[in-house]
């Protein structure tokens, strides 16, 4: 394993993640264009925008699935240790920097039980406890104790998301809403400092959506974990987020509190299209230029 560089710049204490000039190009297509924003410690930050605005691309850059073309992603990790996420490999981002994520289309280990799913998330500490497998095979070392602790932690999470009775059922057998919550619990079992959720409320009914809001609030409050989420459901965004970043065509068009963003004419234009008078004004300009 390569040692990650430690020359990350110092961030203010209340800032957890700073995204600077993030640009991602796929061939000729610029999916994300010079986007900068901050995620504050203990905040729920929402990333919104119309379809194809580049939200998931930003996510994939933050969680290491893409290497950004340009830009710097600084994470102010636990103990004031700074990490440059764009230089870490994907599994290091989760293990070292403490960034966990869920996926737009749920990616649980369907053939494994709910409990096993949560244990896979604790792979790194368990691997260490099993002496990189060598001691574990021989039944030596503190592996059994570590595993018992890991199961306890998984149990606590299963209780929190109300799935303790289904711990021994395969994840693929769970209802959709439960799968969403299990995926969040699985991400939380990696002990993250930043939890990235890609459309967690997609496909949920109003009741499940309410449960999800409660879960996200409790994660922020009880675990002190900051949440970065992509969401289409405006009721979720406006209700739970502290800070909203709006993307459109890969560019950031607005950034602020939910209230400020909601009233931002640029956001309204991006979501609802521009009003008739503005169109007419533009047309007049064009005619004027041609004449």
């Amino acid at each position: 394993m390569t040692t990650p560089p430690a020359d990350a710049p110092k961030l203010p204490d209340d800032t957890l993640l700073r995204v600077e000039h993030l640009t991602m190009r796929f061939g000729g297509l610029t999916a994300v264009d010079d986007v900068s924003f901050d995620v504050k410690r203990g905040d729920i930050t929402a990333l919104i925008g119309p379809n194809g605005a580049g939200k998931t691309t930003v996510f994939n850059c933050v969680t290491g699935f893409y290497k950004p073309t340009v830009g710097r992603l600084t994470l102010n990790g636990a103990g004031g240790r700074g990490w440059l996420l764009e230089r870490l490999r994907d599994h290091q981002i989760s293990r070292l920097a403490g960034v966990a994520r869920t996926f737009q289309n749920i990616r649980l280990f369907g053939g494994m039980t709910a409990l096993e799913n949560l244990l896979v998330a604790q792979h790194a500490p368990l691997m260490k406890a099993s002496g990189m497998t060598v001691l574990g095979v021989l039944g030596l070392g503190g592996f059994n104790k570590a595993e018992a602790a890991a199961i306890e932690k998984a149990k606590a999470w299963l209780e929190r998301i109300g799935l303790i009775d289904r711990a021994d059922d395969p994840a693929a057998d769970l209802p959709y809403g439960d799968q969403r919550r299990l995926e969040i619990a699985r991400a939380m079992c990696t002990d993250p400092v930043l939890l990235c959720l890609d459309e967690p409320a997609a496909g949920l009914n109003p009741r499940e959506s309410g449960d999800l809001n409660a879960l996200l609030r409790s994660i922020r409050k009880e675990d002190g974990v900051a949440v970065l989420l992509i969401e289409h459901d405006m009721s979720v965004v406006m209700e739970i987020s502290d800070h909203v970043v709006v993307l459109d065509y890969g560019k950031k068009i607005s950034d602020g509190t939910p209230q400020a963003v909601r009233e931002d004419p640029k956001v309204i234009a991006a979501y609802l299209g521009v009003e008739d008078e503005e169109v007419e004004a533009v047309e007049r300009e064009i005619e004027g230029a041609q004449a």
Binding site: H91, A100, F109, H123, T190
Partner: peptide, 16 residues
Amino acid sequence: EALREDEIACRSLGVN
């Protein structure tokens, strides 16, 4: 087994 089920999810969970 997790790798067999979903490699991308594995990577997101810090599995090398």
